[in-house]
Nucleic acid binder design. Structure first.
Lengths: 224, 224
DNA sequence: ACACGATGTATTGTCAACAATATAGATGCC
DNA sequence: GGCATCTATATTGTTGACAATACATCGTGT
């Protein structure tokens, strides 16, 4: 299970940043809603100084949009933006999978397989695969990105992009039947990494994300 | 020529962010040097409030590192980090070139060719190709990324990564003889985009960045 | 009834003082 | 002499008040 907030957050702005990020991502703060500095400061019991820094950070990772003298709003992903994110993920995570195949140490590969076994169990039990889709999926992707050993890539994906992914899952609230299929794809990717087959790992990862995107596209079309 | 600072920067923190970013990227603030809030605030004639927001933003784009209760330092790119950035660029700009081949409007393609003609002139005149390497090269890459029409990708590259690229060029101060070769590669990429050959555009862009990286690797080896 | 402008209110941007933490230097001890 | 500890200083984190900007309300004229 991923820990989204480090627990050694020393400054107020870091703590509020992290809490507010989770609140946004989990939909407790509605998409598109305005963020009032005074109000948020009061709910957290802090002054506006550190709060504004937290808001800056949230804007930096793209979760809120800020306009000078006007204020900050939680972003509302359009379907176009959603697909953009998928395209970027395809490029970056494809690369991550390739690098992971080359750099991931044996014990981390074992951990990856453990994770997948847990996911298989959960899918067997959980009829509508809610857990897997919301949290387990990202768990897998996280581990691979971490395995790439490219710090810049890790920061890009784990610090910024994945929170947007989490946000859209709440915003669009999609629940496909892809759970079991996705798990199989995950297993094939993990196998390629285990054999240090970077080429194949990238190919499979790209196909996996593309399939996920195409699934979303279908659902978007069906929606209207 | 790229404009790095928008001129409608309404708030103090935005202005100081932009100025300081340029100062760091151009080496006027030494890599690794500590950033004193009081000092910087005084030189800009502002108070520490907005200055701290500017520092947060600089940390968000990765130009400085900040530790709670200790302070902020300008980053000092290790050669390993430099190569990481090249790898990420290869993936992202490869994708950008492919998308640009599909989405770039005709007039923008013409502009791209104009830029390359100007670069050819400059290389013919400027014996050591200083201009081209420092500024012209990024000019070309900027236009292609813009042509991808993927807003998230554009933000990723233009807002964050390119400033790191500019920084390393000052930090490592490399001056290779690749100018003319790079220009040729640029022309081939532009041609592929003009024919809407996305596959080829990506291939050529990746090769171009890879060649650039390998050149840097050679120079790093030669240095020690 | 509608458009435009003035006024008052709410919100954001900025500042200067205060609190908390870390760094540097001096002192004492082994 | 080297090391730990305590103290003084400098730097960062936080706060509440003030200034500037945007928004809503009301009024006026056509």
């Amino acid at each position: 299970m991923i820990k989204h907030c480090a627990d050694d957050l020393k400054t107020l702005s870091d703590r509020v940043f992290c809490h507010t990020r989770e609140a946004i991502v989990e939909g407790r703060i509605a998409p598109g809603s305005k963020i009032s500095e005074a109000e948020l400061a009061q709910t957290h019991g802090i002054s506006r100084g550190p709060l504004r820094e937290a808001i800056s950070q949230l804007a930096a990772i793209g979760l809120i949009e800020r306009k000078p003298n006007i204020g900050a709003r939680v972003i509302q992903l359009s379907s176009a933006q959603l697909l953009e994110i998928f395209h970027v993920r395809e490029a970056l995570e494809g690369m991550a999978a390739r690098q992971a195949a080359m750099n991931m140490p044996a014990d981390k590969v074992n951990q990856l397989h453990d994770t997948l076994r847990r996911h298989a169990d959960q899918i067997a039990q959980d009829a509508d695969h809610a857990y897997f889709q919301q949290s387990g999926d990202l768990d897998f992707h996280f581990q691979i990105v971490q395995g790439s050993a490219n710090q810049y890539l890790i920061k890009l994906l784990c610090r910024d992009l994945y929170h947007l992914v989490r946000l859209y899952r709440y915003q669009f609230g999609m629940r496909s039947k892809r759970g079991p299929i996705a798990l199989t794809e995950h297993q094939h990717i993990a196998d390629a990494i285990a054999r240090s087959d970077g080429e194949m790992a990238e190919l499979l990862m790209r196909a996996h994300i593309r399939a996920s995107r195409e699934n979303v596209e279908r659902m978007l079309r069906a929606e209207q």
